[in-house]
Design a protein around this nucleic acid. Structure first.
Lengths: 154, 154
DNA sequence: TATTGTTATACTCTATAACTATA
DNA sequence: TATAGTTATAGAGTATAACAATA
């Protein structure tokens, strides 16, 4: 018992903002997803990277960085790790000797396949409480928000 | 021109996950909100802290940390900053000599009032594309997701 | 014994400047 | 000149262990 205080903390002002509700919901999803990925030795960023490379074999690091919405320098260490674990290869790019062509190894492809199954199950579980209509509506709403110039609004 | 590559990068696998869509939408909101708060000398975390203290004068640091979903040690530096800027005070807690009673100064109250106006306008702008029904639906969906045990799912 | 605030520490994430080798 | 990948660096954000004062 922490004293006589009832400790009913209110966040009514913040709750008035849809953005705050969006953040709270996302935090729950993110926390759970981290637990799902940990057994695979993956984090959200490494899983996303592997999946995008799987979908776009031969892509360059700068393209991956842009796709992950991160700065090129910060991607270097991540690719280093994935390469050390033999999940990804930096092949020479055929048309540009400065660039690398990113491709998954067989080990990487296998890992992504298994992790994707787990992520898919996680996703189904998190959104299981929503009806088909609610989910469709949610996607539409999120799409509208995302299309808002992506970054700084008017 | 970056060579002959067309660079159509696909994220179809990730797009199949509602959690990924949630993340993308949240990123847009977060990035824009940061721009809104910067002129006030505030970040998301400092604005949230000030607002919750404004709603709960006399609350303790541990309560604020829990409310912000962060660890107690990480809050110390943040309160230090807010105190240095004369926006918050650490008064002695009346019933427990270990604890602090957090309260906003007049300067802090004024700042929160002005910032909250800007945040409210930002929130209206971001979600302006949604109809009343869509927004109501969105809130309901986000609430359902957030209620999923908050953390690790079953 | 447990809790409040704190210090120290470490690891992840993010952002910028500047270098090299190519284009 | 500009771009791809890299290095170095610094600032946020986050998590854990341990301590002094107090409950």
């Amino acid at each position: 018992m922490a004293g006589t205080k009832v400790d009913k903390i209110s966040d009514t002002t913040l709750r008035g903002f849809s953005g705050y509700r969006l953040k709270r919901a996302f935090n729950v999803v993110q926390a759970d997803l981290s637990h799902v990925l940990k057994p695979f030795g993956l984090r959200m960023i490494t899983y996303s990277a592997l999946t995008i490379v799987a979908d776009n074999p031969g892509m360059r690091q700068s393209e991956l960085a842009k796709s992950l919405d991160m700065e090129r320098p910060n991607l270097v260490g991540i690719i280093d790790q994935l390469q050390r674990k033999k999940w990804i290869r930096r092949d020479p790019a055929p048309t540009d000797r400065r660039a690398h062509a990113l491709v998954l190894t067989e080990l990487g492809q296998d890992l992504v396949a298994r992790a994707t199954e787990a992520v898919a199950e996680h996703d189904r579980k998190v959104f299981a409480g929503l009806t088909g209509d609610e989910l469709k509506n949610l996607h539409q709403a999120l799409q509208k928000i995302e299309s808002m110039t992506t970054g700084r609004l008017s």
